[in-house]
């Protein structure tokens, strides 16, 4: 494991990515405080789930008094994206010098920010250094987010409902910008567009299954479209 690559990844995270993630998790922490959950639990949710949409579902459905099975199923289905995300990222980090368990640790550290950034940065990083870069990047993101969750929880009373809404709105804005701004390849852009249509459409049919079904349908459509264009030359 290269120390230089680890530090490089950490330094690349310790700026705008960590700051924006922190703003989003500040909003989550403040929101969760309003639902009457203890601080330790709210921070633990950031560390254990490490996916903001799933965490929001957990907190909100719990307050609504939904049955345990329904909550776990909804969170699980909303997290389905981690399967294709790890399937794509791990082969790019694989190197004979790494022990196998590293990929299972990296998979837990994976989130949207680290994934998008890694997809953009990996072509410029030597294969053997990628895992270390990713560790550095993801750990800084996770630490900043956990700290921000606690901070948001503690300052919740100082925030007006309006300010909380503004903070919560930061997360989707951040995702929107890193996707629209970070995607360079044509195929990926096509997949984003197809997914952006298919996701909400699938949600109208079945909210729970929308991420899985919409992503599968939209992604397959994008793949077929680009394949047809490529074959035609």
């Amino acid at each position: 494991m290269s120390r230089a690559a680890l530090v490089l990844g950490a330094r690349e995270a310790a700026g705008v990515p960590a700051a924006v993630l922190a703003a989003g998790y500040l909003g989550f922490g403040a929101l969760a405080a309003g639902h009457g959950l203890p601080l330790s639990l709210v921070v633990a949710s950031t560390l254990a789930i490490w996916a903001l949409p799933g965490q929001l579902i957990l907190v909100e459905m719990n307050t609504l008094g939904a049955p345990l099975v329904a909550i776990v199923l909804t969170v699980a289905l909303s997290s389905a994206r981690f399967l294709p995300m790890t399937l794509v990222l791990v082969p790019l980090m694989r190197d004979a010098r790494h022990r196998g368990w590293h990929y299972y640790v990296a998979a837990q550290l994976l989130a949207l920010t680290g994934w998008t950034m890694a997809m953009a940065r990996f072509p410029g990083i030597e294969r053997a250094q990628r895992l270390a870069w990713f560790y550095g990047f993801a750990v800084v993101c996770l630490a900043a987010s956990a700290a921000a969750t606690a901070a948001g929880y503690l300052i919740a009373d100082l925030l007006t409902p309006l300010a909380k809404t503004g903070l919560v709105f930061m997360a989707p804005m951040y995702y929107l910008l890193i996707l629209v701004g970070g995607v360079r390849q044509r195929t990926a852009a096509l997949a984003l567009a197809c997914g952006a249509f298919a996701g909400p459409l699938a949600y109208l049919v079945s909210p729970q299954w929308s991420v899985l079904v919409g992503g599968f349908a939209g992604g397959t459509l994008a793949y077929l479209l680009q394949r047809q264009r490529r074959l035609r030359g």
Partner: peptide, 28 residues
Amino acid sequence: VFAWISCVAYAMIAGLIARMLVMPTGAL
């Protein structure tokens, strides 16, 4: 297969964010 799975990954993420913006739940 890799090309197809990366399309699905991008589409799932885009679908989730589009849904958050078009049909949000909770605080949003």
